[in-house]
């Protein structure tokens, strides 16, 4: 029944998952460039974003046409809306990868501080895991998996909160201070990637339950032990 609608939904869904894989690749590239202070790889990450943007636009257009032609309702409508949001979240994640790459280039001549690089590697791995979990939850319509993103995000948030102190410990050398200030933004980018993964999880919950709610409320945070 409704072969065309189903084919179109499947096609957009497949495109979205591929976009997720591209974002993972961009993030890995950005993290490696950061660790190695590799300006060339950073340039590649920046250029690679065009690929992700093209995917983003293709999905956006696919959804526009699907809405105009197929008038989806109920679960189909929720899926389309969830895909629309997820597409944007993935694209924003990729933009953060570009920001990390640009910052890497700005301080490529400064020797990275190993301890902080190690911390970013861990945050980055967490972010990668969160993207995978978010995409998995989306594919499997898995509410529990989607909800687990909140706890994963808390780990990144904690690491992010530690960064300022680590920067203050870098010492008086202006070059290292600049490096440290740039790294505060890098940390923020990784933290935001985690937030977008949580947002995708919220879209999964909306898709499954039909009710939209934020997993956490930034303006009324719940104290965590």
């Amino acid at each position: 029944m409704r072969i065309t609608l189903q084919e179109d939904l499947d096609s957009i869904n497949a495109n979205l998952l591929e976009e997720g894989q591209l974002v993972l690749r961009a993030l890995r590239g950005a993290l490696n460039a950061l660790r190695e202070a590799d300006a060339e790889l950073a340039d590649e990450v920046i250029a690679f974003d065009d690929e992700i943007d093209r995917r983003y636009i293709s999905i956006e257009q696919g959804i526009e046409v699907l809405l105009a032609r197929q008038t989806p309702v109920a679960v189909d409508l929720r899926l389309v809306l969830a895909m629309l949001h997820t597409n944007l979240h993935l694209e924003r994640m990729a933009d953060y990868c570009v920001t990390i790459a640009k910052l890497t280039k700005l301080v490529a001549n400064v020797e990275p501080e190993p301890r902080m690089i190690q911390a970013f590697e861990e945050m980055g791995s967490r972010a990668e895991e969160m993207i995978r979990v978010a995409l998995d939850a989306f594919v499997n319509r898995d509410l529990e998996e989607a909800s687990s993103l909140v706890d994963l995000d808390e780990l990144i948030d904690r690491a992010n909160r530690r960064v300022v102190r680590q920067v203050l410990e870098l010492g008086p050398d202006p070059a290292r201070t600049e490096w440290g200030l740039r790294m505060i933004v890098v940390s923020r980018c990784l933290e935001r990637i985690g937030d977008h993964a949580v947002d995708i999880g919220e879209q999964v919950a909306y898709l499954v339950t039909g009710e939209f709610r934020e997993f956490t409320d930034a303006s009324h945070p719940v104290e965590r032990s």
Partner: peptide
């Protein structure tokens, strides 16, 4: 240099929706 293969991929052909052809 590490990581140089991560982004070194063939250009992706955007799988355009059939409707956009």
């Amino acid at each position: 240099m590490s990581g140089d293969t991560i982004l070194n991929v063939a250009p992706i052909e955007i799988a355009q929706s059939r409707e956009r052809r």
